[in-house]
Amino acid sequence: MSEPRIVKFEVFRYSPEGAETGEGKWQTYEVPCPDDYVVLDALNHIKDYIDPTLSHRWSCRMGVCGSCGMMVNGTPNLTCKSFVRDLEHPIRVGPLANFPVVRDLVVELESFMDKLKSVKPWIIRKVEKDVKYGEYLQTPDELDSYRQFSMCINCCLCYAACPVMINEPDFIGPAAIALGFRYNQDSRDEGEAERYAVLAGEHGVWNCSYANECSEVCPKHVDPAAAVNREKLVSALQWLHILPKKGA
């Protein structure tokens, strides 16, 4: 293995207590990075051996738990799959845009959690089938109609990229809409009518401004913009009473 090279990182620091209060600041660290280092490895190196006061979230480091999303050189990214060798230096790592900052690279996710819940992301049925009668049948085609939208890892990169979020923080946003749409499209679900008020409501799909940024940054290729705009189409046709709402 080749010698690690020293890479300069500019990391955002903020704390509501002590010296880092105010508007936050960019702190520079020099990190020895082997060739296969990802940005998260560098952050962990800083935390472990340079500055233990740095706070960031992470867990699975294989791109599926969704906790290590940050702004890397201005673009929302999962730091566990952003290779240092692919980035321009110095590498600037900041907290996800469009979320209040709790501390350093940690952002406030409470509003996001509320938005997720608001779309009723669970199977709604008029009559539940008893488990002893087996599964609901669902063909591979029926599965495919929503499968892509079930891949969301709630990493919130799409919220950090969405230009609507900058000015309308109450917009329920790409991931929550994609999730609601995922259940609407599920052949086992009958909750479309219940979700309509939220998805097509004041903070719902109509706030989207077609930037498509959510889909550009989505690390799982969920394509939330597709979900948002399909939901617009369905909602518009339902508004015109051309299409019925499932479960109404």
């Binding site: 509501p16 600037r92 845009a97 469009n98 209040p100 940024e213």
Partner: peptide, 26 residues
């Protein structure tokens, strides 16, 4: 823990809205 400690207002994406390639395109 909602809003239990002061937060820094959310940051606008770096380079919004003209200086970043992706946004420029949009």
């Amino acid at each position: 823990s909602a809003s239990s400690t002061p937060t820094l207002a959310s940051r606008v994406p770096d380079g919004w809205w003209m200086s970043h390639k992706r946004y420029r395109y949009y």
